[in-house]
Design a protein around this nucleic acid. Structure first.
Lengths: 350, 350
DNA sequence: GTGAAAGCGCTAACAT
DNA sequence: ATGTTAGCGCTTTCAC
């Protein structure tokens, strides 16, 4: 009752194991058509499936790739990176061995060692948010960095184009007619925070809108709670200074803005427009009104990383950072500024 | 520059490969202490790490487990199942090969075949939500079902105790003094929907509260949008019938209740109490006020499934469904019913 | 067009 | 207390 081996198939078909291996792997076509058929039928009959383990030992290829991450499993939206990597792996007949280290360095070391011992064909090192990471010593060359950049380069990596995303988010507000646009930033200080701020500044400057430091405000650790308080401070600014549009560092913080607006009796988008970031599943689209936001291309990044790791993609330079576009998702949280303000800004363009 | 093999270590230590294998695997202690040390040093010196592939071929054990799921990677909260399974695997020196089939049957078949070819030591079949699944033909015996039950039994499985959860959610409201409690159900009709309804009825009956069919209402496909409309209908009920507390099928729908309350100018929990289900990451705790809810024990279920799959757990009968408790998470969305209603209910208990 | 045999790197039964 | 050796199940070179 143990699984059939290649020799069982050979016996059943009355040929040698060489022949079986040759036909089952579609190697050369010098085997006659009739033999091929006989082998195939014998394989079916005995229910043969080659042992990946034995094959791997012989070929030194396992058709597996290791995906090691700090905390993807417990970060809601990050699952899409896994899905993207997964799909690309499947399309290329690879299995993914997934390890979530929970951010523990020792676990990480062990995981890398285990993955190497398994002889994975490739490796991906993923972070749950865009950051610069120290490269663990034992990481194999060619490891692809996903949603993070290796400190001193030397590896291909893919991250979101946060600067362009911040620019795009701000443009959405500018194009709707807003002139007093706030950036509700996080206090955590991730790379993305600075990048998005740069994009925000760039869009403002380009539109001839002076940068008002009072409109760049930090709202705690990017939770709805902290953001609500910061947003309330923004909404309590004197009439002439108060923003009519707020670009929040991420969707969670945008929810804080919603909450602040509710507390002040302001309606979105009539009295206040807001743009988020992340396109967080089950958050952005579920707001009332649904939130206009900039999507983090997690699925695509995961797919890119896997394709580069597997070598089926040309643009995966061994030492370049690929910055992936973050598309604007237009929903219903942005409108023109309130009438009295709009008039003033409209005067400019007419 | 290719990786060192066991014979390299043997040569370096001046012993046979048997000896090396014996000491590195801590088998028997008949090897002298000095030899052991010599072997260890030699192994370190040449940077030896055994090849899992070769070992697996020989031992017929791969120390890997296959985790196949329909759509876990793209379901935000489900990542916690992965984390639980992952942690348990690591504690038992196993790696997890993860496949997300996206719900495609053909992909699923291929994945099972690939996992069997890899000779995984165990297998887990996970669903993103509690349901009864058809058992794929080729699934190995002993496969553990996670967050789903196999149609005709025959496998160990773990699911949330939804009935008890529905009961607990309703109790929270009853204990706060509510008597008119609605159950805002989903129209999708998953098992959990019926189970939670049963728990709701049981709690009501036990408390001597008559069941009012008008208070069991379905709100579309468990999105905030559909739930908001249904909740508005609930809030538009005549004063004497209108619920003072709403138990929503899940957190997303609870958010719909929040939105409905906002639109009606009702404050939570002063004018209306609400209880959700799932304890959805970045949703439940982020509401204003934070949502009281019943947690789906995803992490624990994932861990349980892995421990049973690995055989390190006693209660994993080969044909029993383990129902795991869903703990109540008390936050700030439940208070006593509004004064005029509260009086009436208080009269009963004094 | 097909087969024999070596060997991938390990473990473990059997010798010594 | 340590060594020899036969596989685990496959691929692939070389011979016929």
């Amino acid at each position: 009752m143990s699984r059939p081996r290649i020799s069982d198939v050979a016996a059943a078909a009355g040929v040698s194991v060489t022949t079986v291996s040759l036909v089952l792997n579609d190697v050369e076509s010098r085997i006659s058509e009739s033999t091929r058929r006989r082998v195939r039928e014998a394989a079916d009959a005995v229910g043969y499936a080659p042992s990946s383990v034995a094959r791997s030992l012989r070929t030194r290829q396992t058709r597996t790739v290791g995906l090691i991450s700090d905390r993807i499993a417990t970060t809601p939206f990050a699952g899409r990176m896994l899905a993207g990597a997964q799909d690309a792996a499947r399309e290329n007949d690879h299995l993914v061995i997934f390890v979530d280290t929970g951010g523990d360095d020792e676990v990480e070391r062990d995981a890398i060692a285990a993955l190497r011992a398994q002889q994975v064909d490739a490796m991906i090192y993923a972070s749950m948010w865009h950051r610069v990471v120290e490269v663990p010593a034992s990481l194999p060359a060619g490891t692809v960095f996903l949603d993070c950049r290796p400190e001193h380069g030397g590896f291909p990596s893919v991250v979101p184009a946060d600067r362009e995303g911040g620019y795009a988010a701000t443009r959405v507000l500018i194009e709707a007619g807003h002139r007093r646009i706030a950036y509700l930033d996080t206090s955590d200080g991730p790379i993305a925070s600075f990048l998005r701020l740069e994009g925000y500044h760039e869009a403002l400057t380009e539109a001839g809108i002076p940068i008002d430091p009072a409109l760049h405000i930090r709202g705690g650790e990017s939770t709805a709670q902290g953001a609500r308080e910061a947003a309330e401070r923004l909404l309590d600014l004197p009439e002439a200074q108060r923003p009519t549009g707020i670009f929040a560092f991420n969707d969670r913080m945008a929810v804080g803005v919603y909450n602040a607006a509710h507390r002040r009796g302001l309606r979105i988008p009539d009295d206040l427009s807001v743009v988020g970031y992340d396109d967080q599943l089950l958050v952005a689209a579920e707001q009332d009104p649904p939130l206009t936001t900039v999507a983090l291309p997690h699925y695509e990044m995961g797919r890119w990383a896997m394709e580069v790791a597997l070598g089926v993609r040309a643009d995966g330079d061994s030492d370049a950072t690929h910055r992936m576009e973050c598309p604007v998702i237009r929903r219903d949280s942005v409108g023109p500024p309130p009438a009295h303000v709009a008039k003033q800004s409209r005067r400019r363009t007419t």
